[in-house]
């Protein structure tokens, strides 16, 4: 990817990322997040990771962000109330940010890393599939378990209490039932 195009997407990604954490309204944060995610997808494609870049756009923007949007609407969240400024937390955040910026400079001052030339099939679906069903077979199978966990977990935690059997139980064992 030429430097100019990289600079464009990188700047846009950083600005929109700041938008995610600085805007008051959750929906605006979410819109900023979409821009960041798409910029990162573009940068991935620029790094010859075409399949993963497209997946990034489809999975994140198409599924995860929609899920966020759905929850925001479901909870009917508008603007946040005035952010309560807790000095300790903010200070901690500042120190953390400083440490991470330090890390950043450690990267940039390191010796120049160049991109190697790669075959034309680099990052193709076929190559990824070869790896996934080869060396990463176990990891792939574990992800199927993870998806099952997600299905069962969401049902368990987000479902409303269905049965009348539970309706007249006290919420905890120590709370006395109301008579």
């Amino acid at each position: 990817m030429p430097l100019g195009i990289f600079a464009f997407f990188a700047t846009l990604a950083v600005i929109s990322a700041l938008g995610v954490i600085l805007q008051r309204s959750p929906v605006h944060s979410l819109l900023a997040l979409i821009v960041t995610l798409l910029c990162v997808a573009a940068l991935m494609i620029g790094l010859d990771a075409l399949a993963v870049g497209l997946l990034q756009a489809i999975v994140y923007v198409g599924a995860i962000v929609v899920l966020f949007l759905f929850v925001i609407w479901l909870l009917n969240l508008e603007r946040d109330p005035e952010e309560s400024g807790r000095l300790g937390i903010k200070l901690l955040a500042a120190v953390g940010a400083a440490a991470l910026v330090g890390e950043l400079t450690a990267f940039l001052t390191r010796t120049h890393m160049s991109q190697q030339t790669v075959n034309s099939d680099y990052g193709s679906m076929a190559q990824l599939a070869g790896l996934i069903f080869g060396n990463y077979l176990i990891a792939f199978e574990v992800t199927s378990l993870l998806l099952l966990v997600a299905v069962v977990g969401v049902v368990a935690v987000a479902r409303r209490w269905p049965s009348p059997r539970l309706a007249n139980r006290p919420p905890t064992l120590s709370a006395k039932p109301q008579t």
Binding site: A150, L166, R169, T172
Partner: peptide, 16 residues
Amino acid sequence: TMSISAYVMAAMAQRD
């Protein structure tokens, strides 16, 4: 896998 299952199990007693 273990953590996400545990998150859900911790939150499972919904009415508490």
